[in-house]
Design a protein around this nucleic acid. Structure first.
Lengths: 247, 247
DNA sequence: CGATCTCCTTGACCCAGATCAAATGGGACC
DNA sequence: GGTCCCATTTGATCTGGGTCAAGGAGATCG
């Protein structure tokens, strides 16, 4: 962890910020400016990073680990509304408070920018605002696609949808088999999966078992998943088109 | 309708674009430029404005009428993912195709801008991009709040949530009674409400009847709703905080 | 004035998924 | 090895909302 942090802070070359988010089209001098207001924060598994309604002092993106966005009702019912994987962006430039809880699901490292100077820079460099607009539109698409999952899909389809999204996000070359096979570790507990899918953890467990029995997935231990045929999984998810939930 | 259109095209003074969306912070010369690429389109009730996947040639906002954004599965299950009321914005600057169907629920007038010149202008005028970013963040918040409704609320809570959102959107001064009372006409059929809430139309009808029986709402005809006590309605919706679904 | 169409309501029954409860299976730590 | 402490699985039962089916209540139209 410390090693990773040091590596990154030397030159950000590994920092996902540079690849996917705001820096994608930045000039060298703009990157230098960002470097000035950049800092890293680490969180422990289970720690709440931001409480809904809190004033946020930073924006940034996930370097390593998993975080989730959750909405909660007074009586304790909770719904996960986003999944933050490495390189995903957190923050609401131009907005005061957070709209939902952000929780670290695993130990987590974030690459942050102080919010005020970041916003100032955004005003001066149009392409940063445009990049953020694009990212936000992607998130909006993902959220709306997830609304279909929550509102209309069966438990089995929901599980298959989640697995296929995680599989796709995790699709680093090398993890791909020669066939359509795909292997990954679930980054979520059954309970977290349930909160994502609007189900109970028992139903999640039962449907995982059912998918295993039917040969759609193979399970080694509780978390290690092999999908022998992604096409089959996506069929089970109830859509062939499909898109990615970004968080 | 025609009168409205003429009034607007004279000087846009009634055009919601100017108030809420991209023009909010525009200088006079920028407004002139927008005027150049502006045009109006009308749609009939039931007409599909944009098909999911289509290339969109314009962005714009609703002047009058109601439209909805819907996602559909191959087997016909549909989920409404957004409600477009007058002044709401439609479009994805910087994105090629539409991500979902946009359907006119009533006769509809839209104020449109040709997409390409609009995007060109966006590049030159940072505050337009920023305004769009803000709007998109609002929509994202609304979508995520709706995910909680879809994933975790009961049928009764879902209905109450929808009614309270529509009541709030419809809260023009004058329609407010002296008390906490609120009166409005439902812009949606029972079926459309069901598609929005992830329910069947029968369940929607039953829960509407139940809320009427319990005195939470009063119904005159099928669509005219009186809410004697908004506080009570929001309690039924299961949240006191609450926020608006913008579409 | 009926005829028809669309939207809505209500009833009867059923099932997917929730709830309640108990058992299993690793890790970590002594 | 033993014993917590978890996450997870599995079983038994219950129920909210879906499904199927039969009216009713306005509109519109001849």
């Amino acid at each position: 962890m410390t090693v990773l942090l040091d590596t990154i802070s030397q030159n950000c070359s590994e920092c996902p910020i540079r690849h996917r988010a705001v820096c994608a089209r930045c000039e060298p001098d703009e990157l230098d400016e960002l470097e000035q207001i950049k800092f890293y924060r680490t969180f422990e598994a289970g720690q709440t990073i931001i409480w809904s309604g809190d004033k946020m002092a930073f924006v940034g993106s996930v370097v390593s680990g998993i975080a989730t966005l959750t909405q909660a009702m007074e009586d304790g019912r909770t719904q996960m509304v986003g999944l933050l994987l490495p390189s995903d962006f957190v923050g609401r430039p131009g907005r005061e408070g957070a709209a939902y809880n952000v929780v670290a699901n695993t130990d987590l490292v974030m690459c942050c920018f102080r919010k005020k100077p970041f916003e100032d820079m955004m005003v001066r460099t149009p392409h940063v605002a445009q990049r953020l607009l694009e990212m936000t539109l992607d998130e909006l698409d993902a959220a709306r696609e997830w609304m279909l999952v929550l509102g209309r899909k069966t438990a089995r389809e929901k599980i298959a949808s989640l697995l296929s999204i995680i599989a796709r996000r995790d699709a680093t070359p090398g993890k791909r088999g020669p066939t359509d096979q795909m292997v990954f570790d679930l980054p979520l507990t059954r309970e977290a999966m349930a909160d994502y899918l609007g189900l109970t953890l028992e139903t999640v467990s039962r449907q995982m078992s059912a998918l295993r029995k039917d040969g759609v997935i193979e399970l080694a231990g509780k978390r290690h998943v092999t999908v022998p045929d992604m096409g089959r999984l996506m069929e089970e998810a109830g859509d062939d088109s499909d898109g990615g939930m970004l968080g």
